[in-house]
Amino acid sequence: MSVEVGTELPEQVFRITRADLVRYAGASGDFNPIHWNERVATAVGLPGVIAHGMFTMALAGRAVTAWTGDPAAVVEYQVRFGRPVVVPDDDEGAELTVRGKVGALLDDGRARVDLTVTSEGEKVLSLARAVVRLP
């Protein structure tokens, strides 16, 4: 794979439904009701049920592992949680778009990938970046 600064990762689009949030709650152990209970979410001032930030982070990470082809190549991964992803109670759910490009080539055959993660056109993660070992 020929990689240079500016190389773009294939764009990935994910759909997040309420069922996905319930499944992630069980798998991760994060049962905060704002991720599955509309009544609780609106009572604390949210527009509705929101996705776990860590679920959004995991999906965004899939754009990186799909590109490297090897999940073990991800050496470092960080995000700042900006805006919540509101997940409506319907079959379509919310859409998450992940774009990425190589921001820097580092030593030891590693590269830094900078991610842009949006939902409904708004950035939901900021400072989202991964350091990967190139094959």
């Binding site: 499944r23 069980g26 798998a27 679920f55």
Partner: peptide, 15 residues
Amino acid sequence: KIAEFATAVGAPDPV
């Protein structure tokens, strides 16, 4: 547990 988590985040890699 790893399989459950990988399935929940839709990570398809066989590893």
